[in-house]
Amino acid sequence: MTQPAIQPATERMLPTLTDLNRPYWTGGADGQLHVQYCDACSNWMLPPVATCPGCGGVPQFRPVSGRGTVFTYTTNHQPFHPKIPPPNLIAVVTLAEQDDLRVMTNLINCAEDDISVGDDVVVRFENHGEVYYPVFEPAEAGK
């Protein structure tokens, strides 16, 4: 039996925007995910920080490719939030730019049976006001 594909969420409890995190959460308005990078250390980093833990410099936001792989996932079946009905597919995705660059996110346009650890995924954005929340879908779905 094929599981129905999980659709984008209409509700989220989004973080409070700050000067520090705003480029990450709103940067998707241009269709790209923006992540901090330190030139001196040649290192991408998440979550946003004021100074690079490696060198103390100020990392700059840059767009990333939006490609990644599924690191792990779970399908939640418990109705924890009255406006967010299960099932929802929660995942940690490793961004292609660096093997320790992880985001917690949701997978859409697929169901648990369709995915495995290591599968290629690409970013899509859910627009919630000022925020463009990054979710991911299987790479082949966009082809």
Binding site: A9, M13, T16, T72, T74, N76, M104, T105, V117
Partner: peptide
Amino acid sequence: IDEVIAANSFSAVNWLAMHCRR
């Protein structure tokens, strides 16, 4: 934790299920 909650991932059961899957 705000990143975790933003992923509609509200409970330790979700967070630990992902460890378990890995």
